[in-house]
């Protein structure tokens, strides 16, 4: 469990996935990637951490991941083999909103 706030960057313990928090209400949550709790950029993976086959759906660079209510939003800044989940529930890719290029 950890408090997350916009701008916080985390990395997967079991694959190359990295994320940045875009939106999060106050309070602590458990953010997992590949079935293991994500780490701050300076932490190292605990011994024996490995990608769980049930959470190997992968993450894609540049995609935004949200919970069902879209209270939380993460930006995947590096893709990997692990899938993202929040408090045990898989996060989904948010549909891109199409804005015309303004610059």
């Amino acid at each position: 469990m950890r408090a997350i706030k916009p701008g916080l960057r985390l990395k997967s313990a079991v694959c190359t996935t990295e994320i940045m928090v875009i939106r999060a209400p106050a309070g602590e949550v458990r953010l997992d990637c590949g079935g293991c709790e994500m780490l701050s950029v300076t932490e190292s993976a605990p011994a024996g951490a490995k990608l769980e086959p049930a959470h190997a759906g992968g993450s894609l660079i540049g995609k935004r991941y949200v919970d069902a209510e879209e209270r939380y939003e993460l930006l995947c800044t590096k893709g990997g083999e692990g899938a993202l989940s929040l408090d045990g529930t898989a996060l989904q890719i948010k549909q891109a909103k199409a804005l015309p290029s303004s610059d």
């Binding site: 660079i61 930006l75 891109a96 804005l99 303004s102």
Partner: peptide, 9 residues
């Protein structure tokens, strides 16, 4: 940028 541009679009 993150609010107006979709990555790699």
């Amino acid at each position: 940028i993150l609010g107006t541009v979709e990555f790699g679009s």
